[in-house]
Amino acid sequence: MLLRLMLALTLSLGAASAALAGPIYRVAVDTAALAGQGGYVDFLFLGLGSAAPTRAMLSGFAGDFGAASVFEGEAAGSLAGGVTLGNGTGWNEFAQAASFGGLFEFFVSFDAGTVGDGTNLGIALLDQDFNYLGANADIVTFALQPGQADAISVNSGFATVQAVPEPGTALQVLTGLLLMGLVLRHGRR
């Protein structure tokens, strides 16, 4: 009976944590076509109408980033420690200087509200004057709508986006399998 209770608890906690935690995305941006040019990798986070408070967390930055950063609205942090963007009213933007020509990578995750209108995160390559560079629009867009899966648009000429499994998920699966094996073994006696 104790083993069954532990199994049920493990499965319940796993489902609850999966429901609370949003996915983590690995974004890779190939700027080989822009070799020799400088500018910014830009992140713009805007809430629609009555969007619930939502945060975008950016981390794990890799690539030929420069020292200059631009923060506007609900944006704070650093390349080393991560950047957080809020979706409050107004312009919420983080732009990091970059020397293009190579690969840029970073992780994106969201702490999204569950009611109200949605929120969009647009990622773009910009020149020194903050005009689009290489593409005439964002290279990646995350559209977040409460109660729905994240909608992701990608300009495949520049970027790829992959969901990253969370380390806790593998541990939960292994624990559940172990407990199920113990229940089956105990039931055979």
Rank of each mutant, 00 (worst) to 15 (best):
L3C: 10
A95V: 04
F104I: 04
V108D: 03
V154R: 12
Q96V: 15
G82E: 01
A51Y: 02
L121C: 12
A19F: 07
L179G: 11
V164M: 12
Q162R: 05
A80V: 15
L58Y: 14
G86I: 06
M57R: 11
A170Q: 03
G187M: 03
G168H: 08
A18Q: 06
H186W: 14
E105Q: 12
R185Y: 08
L178F: 11
G113Y: 04
D30V: 06
F142D: 04
F104K: 11
G118N: 06
A95W: 06
G36A: 08
F110G: 03
A98V: 12
V164Q: 09
T114V: 00
A97V: 12
L48E: 14
A76R: 13
D64T: 04
A170P: 00
M57A: 05
G134I: 02
G66I: 14
E93W: 01
G38F: 02
L184S: 07
A149G: 06
L125Y: 00
T10S: 15
L121V: 12
Y40C: 10
F142W: 13
V140R: 10
M57S: 05
V154S: 11
S17G: 07
A32F: 09
T10P: 05
T175S: 10
V115C: 00
Q148M: 00
G49K: 07
V173M: 13
N120G: 10
P165A: 11
L11T: 02
D64C: 03
L48C: 03
S69M: 08
I139L: 07
G102S: 12
G63A: 08
G73P: 03
D111Q: 07
G38Q: 08
A51L: 03
T169V: 03
L103Q: 14
N120A: 13
Y25D: 08
L9D: 09
L79I: 14
A21Q: 07
L13E: 11
L11W: 07
G66K: 12
G49P: 00
L5G: 05
E72L: 02
G113K: 02
G176E: 13
F110M: 04
N87C: 11
D42A: 15
L174S: 14
G81K: 12
T31A: 11
G90L: 02
A33F: 03
R189I: 04
